[in-house]
Design a protein around this nucleic acid. Structure first.
Length: 352
DNA sequence: CAATCGTGGCC
DNA sequence: TGGCCAAGATT
């Protein structure tokens, strides 16, 4: 593809974006951008962290909640860890929440509360990798950085009919994406490619008929669009088993444990019950009580294993003294989803 | 570098 | 209905 053709593709994409940009709480519309309205870097950064491996639909309400609870990066930096983890509950990939807070504190402590405006400066922040650094630089600061996310990989693999499977194809796709990035409106361009990938150049049934880039698309010409990008096969997911002990004290408080920062659901509250493993070891209850076993287990699927969680429940007295964890006035919405599932099952029996 | 790390929606 | 998928970072 010639330089002239690339400019044509970029312009067509920007024209399409001007007419079809999706509305999002953290986004400044193309029209407002042209009128001189600047995106809020704090809002952009937060949206990009939340959007890592997460759909726009899932992120929207969380972004509104976070920017309402903590309107500035200084507010977030001053927030207690537990408040931030509770607010993130349900969004998944909880390392992002821990890094979000670390990053806010670094921006306040090391950068005077202003986000760095260079790729290198952004990359040095916790939870900010190549994608997020490029996205913030381009969208918030008009730096002609190239974003390469799953959408861009898919669009480039089709535009240039790249048949090498991911992740091996990533360097090649990155080169294509970089050569298409225009010097003007790099932020709008980045969002345009991602919007295109999310709404038209979709994984399963791409809407090539209404695609603004259909004329120059090599996969469209070759008839391979729906099969790209190629990916290496995934491993089967094992089944792990575990136990959740749900103790309700007479005053309505529940026994919960704060999970260690590293590992699955790190930093989140959860039910006592020991490790989850393929060969389930007998997990001892956290305290002596008249434990009952719920007939239906909690079922949940994580990224790399399925979980079958046996739910045990008990009423305990006001003087109950657990070996670990503490009794907390529970907001189920502040728990990770798998813990909330176990709680919902226990509630069916605790009130009997 | 391959593995780890959540969740909800979709067909 | 179960596998696939989503604006990846970290180790």
């Amino acid at each position: 593809m010639s330089v002239k053709d690339m400019i044509v593709e970029s312009d067509q994409l920007l024209d399409w974006y001007d007419r079809h940009a999706r509305v999002m709480p953290w986004r400044v519309s193309p029209a407002d951008r042209k009128a001189g309205v600047r995106p809020n870097p704090y809002h952009v950064w937060m949206s990009e962290v939340m959007l890592q491996q997460t759909t726009v639909a899932a992120v929207r309400d969380y972004h509104v909640k976070f920017t309402t609870l903590w309107p500035t990066v200084q507010d977030l930096a001053a927030a207690p860890d537990s408040d931030v983890m509770e607010a993130w509950a349900g969004l998944g990939y909880y390392a992002r929440a821990r890094n979000l807070l670390k990053c806010a504190r670094a921006v306040v402590a090391d950068h005077g509360g202003v986000f760095p405006q260079t790729l290198e400066g952004l990359l040095a922040l916790p939870g900010v990798g190549p994608y997020t650094a490029a996205a913030v630089a381009a969208i918030a600061y008009d730096v002609p950085a190239t974003v390469v996310d799953g959408n861009v990989e898919r669009v480039m693999s089709r535009l240039f009919n790249v048949e090498t499977p991911l992740p091996k194809a990533k360097p090649e796709l990155t080169v294509h994406a970089a050569r298409l990035t225009p010097d003007t409106r790099p932020g709008d361009y980045a969002q345009a490619v991602m919007d295109l990938g999310a709404t038209i150049c979709t994984p399963k049934s791409p809407a090539c008929v209404i695609c603004p880039l259909t004329a120059g698309c090599l996969a469209r010409a070759a008839g391979t669009a729906a099969t790209l990008p190629r990916k290496l096969p995934k491993k089967p997911q094992p089944l792990r088993r575990g136990t959740a002990y749900i103790a309700r004290r007479a005053d309505g408080a529940y026994l919960l444990e704060r999970r260690p920062d590293k590992g699955l659901l790190g930093g989140m509250l959860g039910w006592p019950g020991g490790e989850w493993a393929v060969d389930k070891p007998a997990a001892a209850p956290p305290l002596a009580a008249d434990w009952q076993v719920a007939p239906d287990p909690a079922l949940h699927t994580f990224t790399h294993f399925h979980l079958e969680l046996t739910v045990c429940y008990a009423h305990v007295g006001q003087g109950a003294n657990p070996e670990s964890g503490s009794f907390i006035a529970l907001d189920p919405n502040g728990l990770p989803t798998v813990m909330r599932k176990a709680f919902d099952i226990a509630l069916n029996y605790l009130d009997d």
